[in-house]
Design a protein around this nucleic acid. Structure first.
Lengths: 341, 341
DNA sequence: TTGTAGGCGTTATCAG
DNA sequence: CTGATAACGCCTACAA
C-alpha cells in the first residue's frame, strides 16, 4: 500500500545500503557484507547487490564506516611551512603512497609555531588513523604523548621509541666536507637553521665530526630563518666572519645568501663557496647552480606512509628499513679556496 | 553501589560527551549544547561542563558530528600534479583560508589523468563539504554533474553555471605583447600547454587578440607537457620556426626552453626572447631571470575557499568578487628583437 | 547464507 | 534551562 521508493534514494542525498538492500530484495547487512567481504555470500545475491549498487550509484559513506570501525582511512601530514620546497617532495611521496593504498591525506600547516602545531594535531587527532610529523617544532615529551594516542611517524627527527624516517646525513656531509677540503678550504661557516631545529643540530653534529677528522675549522652562524630571506640576512655576518666557504642549513638559505652576495659584488664561487642541503626545485636553476646534499624527499614521504600503514595493519612493512641515503650533488657554487692572503 | 568510573573515560579511548556529562552531573545533551552553542545554557552548569571537559581532555569527535549533521568541515582540493609549482601557491592560500575557518583541507592528485581524477573525486565526495578543482582534466558535463551533487568551485576554468575563480589573463597578456612590441618584435611563437587545457586556450585567445591589434604575427607550437622537460623538447621546433620571441604556456616550459637553448649556445635574450606565465618559485632564480605574467595564485586558493565557505553558509562572500588581476613582471629574459636579416 | 538488533558519538526534536 | 529519545549510515555479533 505504500508507494515504492526502491528505485531511487530519498530526496537527492546519496544512496545508502538500505536503498541498495531494498532494490536488491535483501537486508542491509547482506549488502554490507557483499560489499566489504566478497565471497562470503552466495554468488547470485552478490551479483544482484552489485547490480543494484551500480544502478543507484552507491558509495559507502566513509564517515559512517569510520564512526563504527574507528578507522577513517585518513592520514594527517603536519608540516611547518607549505611554501618550503622541501615539503613538496614529502607531500608528493606521501600523497602517492596514501592514495595507492586507498587512504586520504590531509595536510596541516603549523606555520612554524608550536602552539599552532599542537592545535592542528588536536583537531585532527580524532579523525585520522595516523599522523606524519614532518618538521615538528614540538618538544619530545609532547611527541611521545601524541604517539601514545595515535599511530605516528616522524620525518627527519628522532625521539626515543617513536617510529621515524631518518636520513643518513653523515654520508652526504662526509662527501661535502671532503669535497670542500679537496678544493683547499680549511675553514667553514655553518649557517644554522631555526633555533631548536632537530635536523639543524644533526647537520651541525655531522659537520663537526667531519671537520674535526680533517682538522678543518668550523664556526656556526645562526640561528637563521630557513628561508631565502633568512639567507640574505645572514650575509652580513658571513662577511664579518671572513668566511670563504659556507654550508647552509638548507638550499633556501643558501640561495638567499647567494642572491645577497651577488648584489654586493661578491663572486660565487670565486670569493665565496656556498653549499646547501635538500636539493630543492630551483637549486639547479640558479647561477651558479647550487652544490647541495640531496635528500630523497619523495622516498621519505612514501616511507613514512608505509610505516604508518604497516602499524595500522594495512600493509606490509617497508621493504628497506634502513636510513635513507643522502649524497652530495656537486654543481657550480663551490670552488677552489682563494689563496691565503 | 556501582563503582565510579566518572573520573576517566573507559579503556583508553577518548572521552565522549557521556563521560563529561557524568562527571559534570548533567545529561549528554546538555553537554552537547554547552559546547556547541555557548550562552544558551545556564552559566553555572556551562562552567561545570567546561571544567569537566577540560579535566577529561575531551574533544568532540568530528566524525560522529559529521555523520549526524552531514557536514564534515572538510574541503577537498583536487590538482593534476602536486609537483607543479603553480599548485604550491594555490595549496598555500587554500590551506590557510580553510584552517582559519576551522576547516580541514584534503588534497588529491590526479596525475594528469581524468580517470584518476574522477576516481579521487568519487572517493572524496561523501566525506567533504565542498571541492576545489584546480586543474581539472574533466569534461564540462562531468564537472556539472559533480557540482550538482556537492558544492564545487573551479580555479582557472569556466563552466557554465559553476562557481569559479578566474584570472584576468587579458590584462597581463596585453602588457606582455605590448612589451614585446616595444622591444621591436613583430612575430611571436606560443608554446601551448597540454592538449585540451582550458587555460592554455584562454592564453592563446588572449595572445591572438593582442597580436592582431598590433599587427603582429603569431604561431602556435604544441601541445607541450607543462613541465621543464616539455620546454626542453620544444626547442627544436622553436628553432625550426626561426622564432625570436617565445611565449610559453607556463614558466616551467619557459625554463626548460631556456635551459636547452643555453646548452645549444643560444643567447637569451639576445638571440631569443622568452616569457612565461605564473611567476612560480624559481622564475627569478634562473639566469637571465624570467619575464612572466604573474598570477596571484595564493589569492586564487584563498578565494576558492571563501566562495565555498560562503556557499556552505559558513562565511561571508569574498569581499572582491571580480577577476583576479594578472600583470607582467619584466625581468631579463626578454630583450630587443634582433635586426631583420 | 542471511536477517535482526544493537551501537559507534553526536546533534536535534520534543517534552518537561 | 534541561533531559530523554531518535536518528545519521554502517558494521558485527548473534540468531535463524
Amino acid at each position: 500500500m505504500t508507494d515504492d521508493p526502491a528505485a531511487r534514494p530519498r530526496r537527492g542525498s546519496a544512496a545508502t545500503i538500505y536503498d541498495v538492500a531494498e532494490l536488491a530484495g535483501v537486508s542491509a547487512s547482506t549488502v554490507s557484507r557483499a560489499l566489504s567481504k566478497p565471497g562470503r555470500i552466495s554468488a547470485s545475491t552478490e551479483q544482484r547487490i552489485r547490480a543494484a549498487a551500480e544502478q543507484l550509484n552507491f558509495r559507502v559513506n566513509p564517515i559512517a564506516r569510520a564512526l563504527h570501525t574507528g578507522r577513517s582511512s585518513t592520514l594527517a601530514l603536519v608540516v611547518a611551512d607549505i611554501t618550503n620546497p622541501v615539503i613538496f617532495g614529502i607531500v608528493r611521496g606521501a600523497e602517492q603512497a596514501a592514495s595507492a593504498a586507498g587512504y586520504t591525506l590531509v595536510i596541516a600547516e603549523s606555520q612554524e609555531s608550536d602552539a599552532t602545531e599542537a592545535e592542528a594535531i588536536e583537531r585532527l587527532m580524532p579523525s585520522v588513523d595516523g599522523m606524519i610529523l614532518a618538521t615538528s617544532r614540538l618538544a619530545d615529551d609532547r611527541i611521545v604523548d601524541i604517539a601514545s594516542r595515535k599511530a605516528a611517524v616522524l620525518i627527519n627527527r628522532a625521539v626515543d621509541g617513536i617510529d621515524s624516517v631518518l636520513l643518513d646525513v653523515d654520508e652526504g656531509v662526509q662527501q661535502l666536507i671532503s669535497h670542500l677540503s679537496d678544493l683547499g678550504h680549511r675553514s667553514i661557516a655553518y649557517l644554522s637553521g631555526p633555533d631548536r631545529s632537530w635536523i639543524s643540530e644533526r647537520r651541525w653534529d655531522g659537520l663537526l665530526g667531519a671537520a674535526e677528522e680533517r682538522g678543518m675549522a668550523l664556526v656556526e652562524i645562526g640561528p637563521n630563518a630557513p628561508t631565502i630571506l633568512g639567507g640574505r640576512e645572514a650575509l652580513r655576518r658571513v662577511r664579518a666572519a671572513r668566511a670563504r666557504a659556507v654550508v647552509a642549513f638548507n638550499d633556501l638559505i643558501a640561495i638567499g645568501l647567494m642572491q645577497a652576495a651577488a648584489e654586493q659584488g661578491l663572486e660565487v664561487p670565486t670569493d665565496l663557496s656556498v653549499a646547501g642541503f635538500d636539493d630543492i626545485f630551483g637549486s639547479e636553476l640558479i647561477v651558479p647552480p647550487l652544490t647541495t646534499v640531496r635528500a630523497p624527499l619523495v622516498s621519505a614521504g612514501e616511507r613514512a606512509v608505509q610505516i604508518l600503514l604497516h602499524r595500522l595493519g594495512a600493509a606490509a612493512p617497508p621493504l628497506d628499513s634502513g636510513l635513507l641515503d643522502t649524497r652530495l650533488i656537486v654543481r657550480g657554487s663551490t670552488g677552489q679556496a682563494p689563496p691565503p692572503s
